[in-house]
């Protein structure tokens, strides 16, 4: 093996190990930087002044400026309760108890090319003020690419994969201190085309 080939292999292997090890931590696939509850994932140190470099890198690469959990907690889910990827070829239901926060928002976000996503309605969110609840304060959301009765949240009509983002504004102190105690809505898959 010539020295040139040896050095080329050395550089490629070294850089690949360094890059991919960082990538997997930054994306939250390995390490203890996120908290998972069912399908939902939360970056525990998002927006904290003492956040670790990987958490900072995660949001920096998304070009986001997160606020601390005292102000805002952002949970995201890209799989249903059974672990299947969320796709707009299916319908989903989310049943939730009242969320212990001053305000909240649940939004549908396409996982790729958000600009190309087409929805049958302009509304892609529900929030604490406009969701219809039952007498106990619980609510059910129905996610589908075509209109449904009740709290219908439209999905992209092009069969795209999507993620759900649940943002809690000024969550209760207990939830901020121990997010694992929060009961998040289960994402149940219904029929698929």
């Amino acid at each position: 093996m010539t020295p040139f080939i040896r050095i080329t292999i050395f550089v490629l292997v070294g850089c690949a190990i360094g890059y991919f090890s960082a990538h997997y931590v930054i994306s939250g696939q390995i390490g203890d930087l996120t908290m998972e509850s069912g399908s939902w994932k939360l970056w525990k140190k998002a927006g904290h002044p003492d956040a670790d470099p990987y958490t900072k890198a995660h949001f920096s690469l998304l070009r986001e400026l997160p606020l601390s959990s005292f102000e805002q907690m952002t949970f995201s889910a890209d799989t249903d309760f059974n672990g299947g990827s969320l796709s707009s070829v299916c319908t989903y239901t989310l049943d939730s108890a009242p969320l212990p926060a001053r305000a909240w928002e649940l939004s549908v976000q396409p996982r790729s090319n958000p600009a190309l996503a087409t929805f049958t309605s302009q509304r892609t969110t529900f929030n604490a003020s406009n969701v219809v609840r039952n007498s106990q304060g619980n609510f059910r959301l129905v996610l589908s690419d075509s209109a449904r009765p009740g709290n219908w949240l439209p999905l992209p009509i092009n069969g795209a994969e999507f993620k759900l983002v649940l943002t809690l504004i000024n969550a209760g102190r207990k939830i901020i201190e121990d997010p694992a105690t929060l009961k998040l809505p289960e994402i149940r898959v219904g029929s698929c085309r």
Binding site: G14, I17, G18
Partner: peptide
């Protein structure tokens, strides 16, 4: 290789995100 991987890891997780 370990040293080069560590350098690449730091650049990927600290330097590039900071620029971004």
């Amino acid at each position: 290789i370990v040293l080069l991987a560590a350098a690449a890891h730091i650049v990927t997780s600290v330097f590039f995100p900071r620029l971004e």
